[in-house]
Design a protein around this nucleic acid. Sequence first.
DNA 1: TTCTTTATAGTCACTCTGACTATAAAGGCT
DNA 2: AGCCTTTATAGTCAGAGTGACTATAAAGAA
Lengths: 254, 254
Amino acid sequence: MSNPAPEGYDPHAYAPFAVTVDLAVFTVRDARLHVLLVERGQEPFRGRWALPGGFLLPRESAGDAARRELAEETGLGPGTVGALHLEQLRTYTDPDRDPRMRVVSVAYAALLPDLPEPRGGGDAASARWWDADAVGPLAFDHDRILADARDRIGAKLEYSCLATAFCPAEFTLGELQQVYETVWGVELDRPNFRRKVLSAPGFVQPVGGPPRRTGGRGKPAALYRAGDATALHPPLLRPPRTDASSSGTEGHDR
Amino acid sequence: MSNPAPEGYDPHAYAPFAVTVDLAVFTVRDARLHVLLVERGQEPFRGRWALPGGFLLPRESAGDAARRELAEETGLGPGTVGALHLEQLRTYTDPDRDPRMRVVSVAYAALLPDLPEPRGGGDAASARWWDADAVGPLAFDHDRILADARDRIGAKLEYSCLATAFCPAEFTLGELQQVYETVWGVELDRPNFRRKVLSAPGFVQPVGGPPRRTGGRGKPAALYRAGDATALHPPLLRPPRTDASSSGTEGHDR
DNA sequence: TTCTTTATAGTCACTCTGACTATAAAGGCT
DNA sequence: AGCCTTTATAGTCAGAGTGACTATAAAGAA
C-alpha cells in the first residue's frame, strides 16, 4: 500500500472518515414501486426526506448495520429482517457528499412484500412509503443512490429469482408478473410470462393440492411459492425499450 | 439516521474508520488470466502478496484514489490511467479484516491489455503479474476480493463490451475470442463467436481498408477496434458449465 | 343470463443458437 | 514446388426460445 499507516497505528491520524449505510427499501403497492423514506429532524437537510440509514457501530460490519437500521425503521422483527435479501449496491465517496464531515456511505437495496405502514419505533417516527416516481429532491446524494438502486433492481430481475422477494410467501403468477411490470414499467404478455416462469427450473414451485386464491374478480389462480434457485436460467429479458426514458449513467463514481 | 453525529460534529468522535481502496488489475497474457500483485514490505502480512491499494487522501474520492494507486503501481501515465475502465466491485467492512485498526476497503477491478512488467516506481518496486490461478494465500481478505473480482469480470463479459479493454487498440477477432476463453475457462466455437460479435451493434468496428495482422502462422485476420457501444445486445452468454470446476458462490452481482 | 375479468392452454412464424462443413490464405516442410 | 498445418472466414441446418396471437375456463358483476 502506498499510504501505509504510521508505525504507531494511531487510528485518528489516518482515519478521518465516518462510515454509514444507506438503505433503498422497496415494495410494490397498488402496482406502483414504493420506497421507504424518513424525514430528517436535524440539519443538514432538516425537513427533507432521505433514505434510512446510519453510522456503523465500532465493531459492526456494514451488512449488520444495514439489518439493524432496517429493523429499527420498519419495526420488523429481527427474525424477519435476518432472513430477507439485502444487496450491497455500491459505495459513495464524494468528499463533499456530506457538508458536516467526510462520510463514505455503503448503499444497500432491500425488497419487501407489501407491508403495513412502518411502525415508528424510536427515530423512525417519520418513516413512510413513497411512490418511487414521486419523490422530491432527497437529502445528500440520495437521489442518485435511489436511481442506482432502481437500475440495479430492474437488472437483477432479469437473471435472478429476486422478484419473489416482493411477494408474500404464497403468490399467484399474476402477482409475480405485476412485480416485473411495475419495476420495469412495461406491460408483459400473460401467457408468455407464464410459460417462461414455469420453464425456469427452481424459480417457483406450485403449492400442494389445488388451492386457489380468493378475493379477485376473475378465475382463481393457482398459488406458488419461491423455489430454491437463486439464478434464472434462461433469463427473463426485459423487452427492448421503444425509445423514451433512459436514465442510467454508466458506472461513474461520485 | 439512528446514530446521528453529535451536535459539535467532531469527526474523531464518530469517525473511527480508515478507508482504503484495493485494486484487482487483470490482464490476459499467454492465454492465462494474470493479476497484478505487490509484495508487502511491512507487518502485518510482511512478505505476503497483496492487491495493490492504499488509503484515501483527505479530499479524494475512492475512484480518484484507485486511479492514483494504479498509476503508481503500474508506472502508466496519468493519461492512460484516466482513460481506462475502473469498476467498483463492492466494499469490504468486516471489523477484523485488518488487525491494526478498523479499515473498510472499496474494491475496484481494472482491465488492461498485455503490458510489460510494471516499472517499479516508488513503492511499486515489488509489483508483478501473477497467473490468477496460481496465487498463494494473499494478505488480508484479498483472496476473497480477488475471487469476487473474477466472478464479476466473467459476468460482465456476457452483457457488456468490456472484453475489448483486455485488447490493444487494434485487435483481431481471434484475440478477442482468446479473452473470453481465458476469463471463462472454456473453448468457444470460432465461427459462432464471430457471428455473434459482428452482429452485436457497436461492439467492434472494422479498421478501414484491408489491413491485416502479421506475425502469426495462419491466414491473416482483419483488424478491429472497440466500437462505441457499452452494452451488448444480444448478450454473449457463457456456455452452461458441464459439471467440473464450480468456484462461484452463487448470487453474483452484475 | 350475459358481460367482464382473470387464468390457463395452445398455435405459429420468426430468430437465435450450437454443431458442423467448406473454403481461403498464410507459413513451414521435405 | 508441392503438401501439410494453422488460422480466418463463409455457409448450412436442426432445434430451442420468443413474441404475437387465439381459444377456452372459471369466477364475480350487471
